[in-house]
């Protein structure tokens, strides 16, 4: 603070007269309130996850992670994300192309529909598939007669995950591609490129950071989803338990170290997601539409 250069920059940047900003003591109080609030509500929950996971030492931690049921929960979570994220990438790109590159009737309505899953409770997102595919469901009898299992199995978990992560890629790409306009694509087409080449060599490089940003958020939610998956999974240990569901089971069995060990992996995923997201925002902020808000 003693550096005169910094001080003058600050004064220039922050205020010219005291009435345009709060007084120094008021600033200190506001910052103290904010830090205390964020410390209690954000930092402590994060710290306690790792604290509890390591409460009985590193060996107990690694041991609970090498448990067979835990391993299968990790594998299932990776499998579900590996199926549902690419599905939503294809949808997101396709929807963004249709909505951003063309003017057609009902566009605004379609954009609203894409956001619909965000305003539905995760439990309801799971419930709708139970009503459709369950034993008493609309298609339940037909599925049973044909020996197709969707509910309480991997397909149901994938469907519920696709439902809750549905908007992430699309809502990132749509505003970005709208902002970029059609000029580049029209130039490529007029130079003789076909549609596929135009997309692959012109559009995709233009939106790659925005796409990555959407995929990052989509993946975090896909791996962490609890409510929707909980309703359709059936909670069969070693078979239909994803990592978040496994956290619940271990926690309810009073296996705190086990529950928090799995939770620490998910918290690690969240931290990696946040770091990558922040890096993307810092380096490619202009090429990411979502930096204006979620």
């Amino acid at each position: 603070m003693a550096d005169p250069e910094i001080k003058s920059y600050e004064q220039h940047h922050e205020s010219r007269s005291p009435a345009v900003t709060e007084s120094r003591p008021a600033q200190a109080v506001l910052m103290a309130i904010v830090f205390a609030f964020l410390g209690i509500f954000l930092l402590l929950p994060l710290i306690i996850v790792f604290h509890e996971a390591l409460a009985k030492g590193v060996s107990a931690y690694t041991q609970s992670l090498s448990d067979a049921d835990t391993r299968s929960a990790i594998r299932l979570t990776l499998l579900v994300a590996a199926i549902s994220v690419p599905l939503n990438i294809v949808f997101g790109i396709s929807a963004a192309w249709a909505i951003a590159k063309f003017e057609f009737k009902g566009k605004a309505f379609l954009t609203t529909l894409i956001d619909l899953p965000f305003s539905v409770s995760p439990v309801i997102s799971g419930l709708v598939y139970v009503l459709l595919f369950g034993a008493q469901g609309l298609l339940g009898g037909w599925l049973k007669a044909h020996g197709i299992v969707i509910l309480f199995a991997v397909p149901g978990i994938v469907l519920a995950t696709v439902f809750v992560t549905f908007p992430f890629v699309a809502r990132e790409l749509i505003p970005l591609m709208q902002e970029q306009g059609n000029g580049d694509e029209e130039a490529a087409l007029s130079l003789g490129a076909n549609g596929w080449q135009t997309f692959w060599y012109v559009t995709l490089p233009n939106v790659k950071w925005g796409l990555l940003y959407g995929v990052l958020l989509c993946n975090a939610r896909a791996m962490g989803e609890f409510g929707a998956v909980s309703v359709v999974s059936g909670h069969i240990r070693g078979l239909t338990n994803t990592m978040p569901l496994h956290v619940e089971i271990l926690y309810n069995e009073y296996n705190a170290v086990g529950a928090f060990a799995v939770a620490s992996l998910l918290a690690g995923l969240a931290l990696v997601t946040l770091v990558l997201k922040t890096l993307l925002e810092m380096r490619y902020g202009a090429e990411i539409a979502a930096t204006r808000g979620h």
Binding site: M223, M243, P244, A267, H294
Partner: peptide, 13 residues
Amino acid sequence: AMVDLPFALPTAV
């Protein structure tokens, strides 16, 4: 960046 933690942290955790 920390403000987004609730978006990224699974709800069960």
